[in-house]
Computed example of a mutant assay.
Amino acid sequence: MPAARLAHPVPATALRAAVAGPAADADAADAHPLVAAAAAYAAERLRPAALTTDAVGVTAEQIDDLADLGLLNHLAGERYGGAALGRAEDRRIHEHVSSACLNTWLVWAQHAPLARRVESALVDPPPPGGVIDALLRGRILAGAGLSDVRRYPQRYVAARSVGEGWRLTGTVSWVSGWGLNQAMLVAGVDAERERVVLALVPIDDRFTAQPIALTAVAGSRTARVRLEEVVVPSDLVLDVQPLERWRRADRESAVDAKPHLFGFAAHVLAELAQEPAQAARDVVAAWTPRVRDLRARAYALADAEDAEARFAERLEVRIASGEALTTLARALLIVRAGRGLEREDSAQYCVRSAHFLLVQAQTESVRAAWLERLQGR
């Protein structure tokens, strides 16, 4: 099946929320000029190239395009040339980009929240021309090396206080966009006092990378990156906090079904809707309202004032959303019979991607819930 299979736009109404709430706010965000520009770029440029990008990798030109659109600092404040977008607009952009090209989304999504995170950590404006200023102004792409804190004490990046800064040593298990990133946000653990040190580090010859041969999102330029005695001055250290506080925040953040799940679901539904077999369109008719409901519940739960107390509900929605994705991807593979396994057919891209999304940003809570579900309890 040619790559043109991916060239169709996802209808803006595919997953419209039936009632008012955060999901409806995300739908309404399509009227924002930056969201509309992102949607157009995703449909016209990213989607037609998605299978090629999966095979050969996200390009520097694509990152330049995102920068030109203002999507490398869309969450930064106006003082840095950012759009200071709200949650609804940000969610909708994630939906559009992930629907069009999951590889590009993964590279961009590691960077996307950093401007707001870095800006909120600042006490004083950063010096002009420095790496923090460049990130806030959308002039560079940064990667993220944060998830290894979850593996402490078995495996982590070690942080040791040295004079007016910190020394980082260790291996970051997953960094997407390697070769395109000019900086990396790294979380190291000070084992002596059990603190997490968060620093923005310019990438240079102190970093060594080993590309990872992934079977899903293979075009995301993901590498395993080694930091060897990397000294970070205090002005690039954004936060130092207790390990337990970090773990609580990570647990809360990772549990939700995020916008990229629903963006990708909309993509698979649209692929199925184009199939000539009536049975495929019957699958679309059955699953579109289910996915719409999961999306509405996910966003409402994430935004709820008592979200922390509703952790179990949020976890249930994430698991159900993953199951919906894998079911829809299997349906696409089945309807295309043997053709769906060919490299140039988008069905195999959808199946691989859906399974990647099952484990992406996985914590112990999510893993345990998945395995319990698979035991049929």
Rank of each mutant, 00 (worst) to 15 (best):
S147M: 12
A280Q: 02
P276S: 02
R139V: 06
H267T: 07
P128H: 05
P113V: 07
M1N: 15
V232H: 00
L269H: 01
V317K: 00
D27T: 08
R155F: 09
V230S: 01
L301W: 04
N73Q: 04
A309V: 11
A354R: 03
G130A: 01
A23W: 05
P22I: 03
H8C: 13
D68S: 15
R116N: 13
F264V: 01
L106I: 11
A286I: 14
A354I: 01
Q278C: 08
L180S: 00
R160Y: 09
L374F: 10
A100K: 01
A40R: 15
G188H: 03
A76D: 05
L301N: 04
T52R: 14
S120E: 11
F207W: 08
A7N: 07
L315M: 11
E308V: 13
S346E: 10
L272T: 06
P233G: 00
A84S: 08
P202L: 04
R221E: 00
A134P: 05
P33T: 07
G263L: 09
Y41T: 02
V123P: 03
S253E: 15
G163T: 03
S173G: 14
L106G: 04
L236I: 02
N181D: 09
R224I: 00
L51H: 02
V172Y: 02
P211N: 00
R79D: 07
L122R: 00
A312N: 09
G163M: 05
R290H: 11
H32S: 12
E252L: 15
L6K: 13
A249Q: 10
C350Q: 15
A20G: 07
L243Q: 07
G219I: 02
A14F: 10
R251C: 08
E313K: 05
R343I: 07
A347T: 02
A369D: 10
L236Q: 10
R247D: 11
A249W: 10
D293S: 15
R193C: 04
L69M: 05
L272K: 03
W370D: 13
V366S: 09
L200E: 06
H8I: 08
L325N: 11
R310G: 01
W370L: 14
R281T: 10
A4I: 12
V123E: 11
E89A: 15
L374D: 12
G138A: 02
L102P: 05
R295M: 12
G86L: 12
G170P: 01
E229H: 13
H111N: 05
A36F: 11
W108F: 06
R245C: 07
N73W: 04
G70P: 00
L301S: 03
F356G: 03
L66A: 08
G129R: 05
G21S: 06
P126N: 00
A280P: 02
S173F: 07
H32Q: 14
R195F: 06
R343G: 03
Y156T: 04
E364V: 15
A38Q: 01
A298E: 09
Q274V: 03
S346M: 13
S176F: 08
L146Y: 11
Q375G: 13
A183S: 12
A285I: 03
L341Q: 08
E316R: 14
T363Q: 10
G170E: 05
A279H: 12
F262S: 04
A191V: 11
G188L: 03
A331F: 08
A361I: 09
K258R: 14
D64Y: 08
G70T: 08
I212N: 00
E228F: 07
L332E: 01
R91Q: 14
N181Y: 01
P9S: 06
